[in-house]
Write a protein that binds this DNA or RNA. Structure first.
Lengths: 341, 341
DNA sequence: TTGCTATGTCTTTCATGGATACCATAAGCA
DNA sequence: TGCTTATGGTATCCATGAAAGACATAGCAA
């Protein structure tokens, strides 16, 4: 590895001069700079981020915490897309990304210590149990931190606009003439609470009276539970004409229940009976089965998270913590029948 | 941040002694060691990986290269699972993971330089265009490197056992009494070639004569193309009784074609007509629709990659480059009818 | 015009960041 | 004296930043 020392020797100047030349300091002669840069280029010099980090106490490295006990973290397209967005934005600013875990060396330790050990400039936290004391410890430290889909007092949070998302879906169905809209929702988390709020908000604004049996709690990514929930809905004396499903996995379970009951969603249907369906963030199913879905803008969430985190790092004084709501959009398929025509 | 210096001062010993005590060197007194360790603990001392890396030239940081032009890299469950396996194994050995990209700072540069810049101990390469000159440059460098699903001369490669995978599936269908087995396969890549080899191998060994129109080229993750391919198969004068699909996405497209033709897979079927289906690495669909599939052991592939890479790093002399075939297994669902009963 | 200081530009010296490796030294004991 | 064991001193990894030094030119008084 060629270092500044080598360049200095070759150019007959001191190491400090080389440092100045390569870092674009202004108190250095034009010719010297050119000469040094040329030699650096020629020798294939590459800065050593380790040495720089030691001296400057800045690593240009961001930590990413994606704990996923159920191995469902990165497997979720939502999270892997967030990661990609985060990565893209971070890289554009010259930051790299390192995963955080609760080891230091091969000894278990706290997340906070891990961050210090690696000298990370900041961290993004997503998809974890936000009540985990180790996470709380991290949030209580002075390391710049941004969370996704969760609010920690005093920290910037990037939030998917769940309220507006479900509101949009319900209005969409309403405009297609649906009045009997059911909602199978996920377990009790901040995300789910937002979506339920959106549902009730839309119903209230539209003057829809939704019977309580149309709102069924389930669990995210559990096709069997959702199949069961769908079955219940289909067996109601007055079944809904449209069902809002919580996610891809669940929808497939629900669709199985439909097939079993001799019905399917519009366009795919080869039965007399059909039920309209809406998905939440079912991007793949939108592609595969033309399901109408609200798409969370996961890529934008990731990019925004990186952007805000980097701002926190570079301008700690000017920056206020904030809550950024990232809205998605409706991806229209053919799974909702227009009852108006 | 408390450093060794602080501990040394507090204990009245030299920094060198502290280093020895904390690193488990043996040329140090038991009592001194205990005292130093206790104080370190008490003061909340945390090693500084940056300083250590500078001195030892070892970062305990592994690079991960997951280029994904089509944004299909981490979104693939296969790759995100590999990442998780890799991460788990690396962390167990005290290594962290940093993404590699072709930037250094915010300037575009080579992957190789990026690795040097960060002082990475080794790299794993997956899901990229292996003909990209920047990748070739990386492979030509002296940085320890392991590839996944691709072989670079002189480097260790971890390979999913595609030949055996398809072979297993075909034998399974055969044992269930199927003789008319169709195969919709992906685009021409090393992976696909392996799978085709497995298909032909199984047919030959089983004495199956598969008509050429049963083997249809498609593209991975393209439900529309697969829908079309399935339609073709169903319209044949002598259609297959079992279809092997290339992936989850494609299967859903294929299943749509089935529904349209008034048939479905066993168990789900509410029609008279049914077609058995097999998937390749369709783990989610196995969960959701009880599809029988061959599961690649992506987690094991990731772990193996980390294991071999770390071996290369820690024992550069003893270690020979090798090609490791990771086999998966059959995940039996209800999507293949047993024609024997 | 000479000579001296002031000014500004460029470059070097030196200390520093935290940890480790090597060598030196001291103490203790055979 | 020679050897082991425990500990300290110091250089080093590479880059940076503050401060000091070198040098040249400009400005001004004598």
């Amino acid at each position: 590895m060629v270092s500044m020392k080598d360049i200095a020797k070759r150019c007959g100047v001191s190491v400090a001069t080389v440092s100045k030349a390569l870092n674009g300091q202004k108190d250095i002669g034009q010719e010297t700079r050119k000469r040094i840069c040329a030699v650096a280029q020629e020798m294939g010099y590459m800065a050593n981020s380790v040495a720089r980090a030691l001296k400057t106490n800045r690593s240009y490295n961001l930590g990413m915490l994606f704990v996923d006990e159920r191995r469902s973290g990165l497997g979720h397209e939502y999270f892997s897309t967030i990661l990609e967005g985060f990565k893209a934005e971070a890289e554009a600013h010259g930051f790299d990304i390192t995963f955080i875990n609760s080891h230091v060396g091969n000894q278990p330790d706290s997340y906070t210590k891990h961050c210090r050990y690696r000298g990370l400039d900041g961290i993004v936290v997503a998809c974890v149990d936000f009540n985990d004391p180790r996470i709380l410890d991290l949030a209580a430290s002075d390391i710049p931190l941004v969370t996704i889909d969760h609010i920690f007092e005093g920290h910037t949070a990037i939030l998917s606009d769940n309220i507006n998302g479900v509101d949009t879906l319900v209005r969409y169905a309403y405009n297609k003439g649906h009045r009997k809209i059911a909602f199978i929702h996920g377990e009790n988390t901040a995300v789910t609470r937002g979506r339920l709020t959106g549902f009730h908000q839309a119903c209230q604004n539209l003057g829809l009276e939704i019977p309580p049996e149309y709102i069924i709690p389930s669990v995210y990514h559990d096709p069997d539970l959702c199949e069961e929930a769908t079955r219940k809905l289909l067996q109601l004396p007055d079944p809904p004409t449209c069902i809002l499903f919580p996610d891809d996995f669940s929808f497939i379970g629900g669709h199985n229940a439909m097939l079993e009951a001799g019905c399917s969603i519009p366009r795919l249907s080869v039965f007399n009976r059909e039920i309209s369906a809406l998905g939440y963030d079912c991007i793949n199913l939108a592609r595969m089965m033309h399901l109408t879905t609200y798409t969370q803008n996961a890529y934008a969430i990731g990019r925004t998270a990186a952007d805000r985190l980097i701002r926190l790092i570079e301008h700690p004084d000017e920056t206020q913590t904030e809550q950024v709501l990232v809205s998605g959009g409706l991806l229209e398929g053919t799974s909702v029948r227009d009852l108006n025509v």
